[in-house]
Simulated assay, not measured.
Amino acid sequence: MFFASDNSGPVPPQVLEAMTRANAGHVAGYGADDLTLSVTRRLRDLFEAPEAAVYLVPTGTAANVLSLACLCPPYATVFCSPAAHIHEDECNAPEFFTGGAKLTLVGDSDRMTPETLRTAIEGEETRGVHGPKRGPVSITQLTERGNVYSMDELRALTSVAKEYGLPVHL
């Protein structure tokens, strides 16, 4: 098995077949086509968010950095583990697309705990105008080391974020 990025391998035949089927006839662009509208409806149903804005992007990096750019102003920090995907594998794209927000590494493993997250959050905003403001908590699920957060662990982390009014990016 080859566990590198799906961007470095061939397109699976099923994807090419689906693209061929989708490439029939002339359709409205910019998300107004039936296929995009269908995907939007399905995602809204899946996430029980009937009014969610849905934007389809070509890569995981694009999805992560565009999400973080919406959640984090340039003067804030993103809380993540030292082995977070946004820290290890996205070539400073999160910092670039947020306009300069920094990453605050939480704990010393691939998974944050409520205690290490709380400590990191409380450690920010202690320098007044000279330090970053608190920003989103970013959780990598499945971690870069192959570990998985349980639902209870995710609830505990998001509970800490909510205590401080911080958004969560997963």
Rank of each mutant, 00 (worst) to 15 (best):
M1E: 13
S67N: 11
A53Q: 14
Q14A: 15
G131I: 00
T116F: 04
M1W: 13
L117F: 00
A101C: 07
R134N: 06
A4V: 10
A4K: 10
E153R: 05
V11H: 11
S138G: 03
M1K: 00
Q14I: 14
S8C: 10
L105K: 03
G131T: 03
F2R: 12
A120L: 08
R145M: 05
R44D: 01
P136H: 11
D6S: 15
R42E: 13
G60V: 08
P167D: 11
C80T: 15
P10C: 11
E48A: 14
P136S: 13
V39D: 02
T36P: 05
T116L: 00
G107S: 02
E163Y: 08
P50K: 01
E125K: 01
V65Q: 11
A69S: 06
G128L: 02
M112K: 01
E115Q: 09
R145G: 06
I121H: 10
G131C: 05
H26L: 15
Y149Q: 02
H87A: 08
T119I: 03
D89E: 08
A63Q: 01
E88N: 00
E17S: 14
H87D: 00
G131K: 07
E90A: 01
A52K: 03
T36C: 13
T61V: 14
P50A: 09
L105Q: 06
R111I: 11
L170M: 11
G29K: 03
V15T: 10
K133F: 15
F97I: 07
G123L: 09
T113L: 07
P132N: 04
E153I: 02
V78L: 06
L154Q: 04
L117Q: 11
E144T: 15
A93M: 11
R44S: 10
D108W: 10
R21W: 03
P58W: 11
E90D: 09
A76M: 03
L142M: 07
R134D: 02
A53I: 04
F3W: 08
R118L: 09
H87I: 01
F2N: 15
T158A: 06
E90T: 07
D152Q: 14
A32K: 15
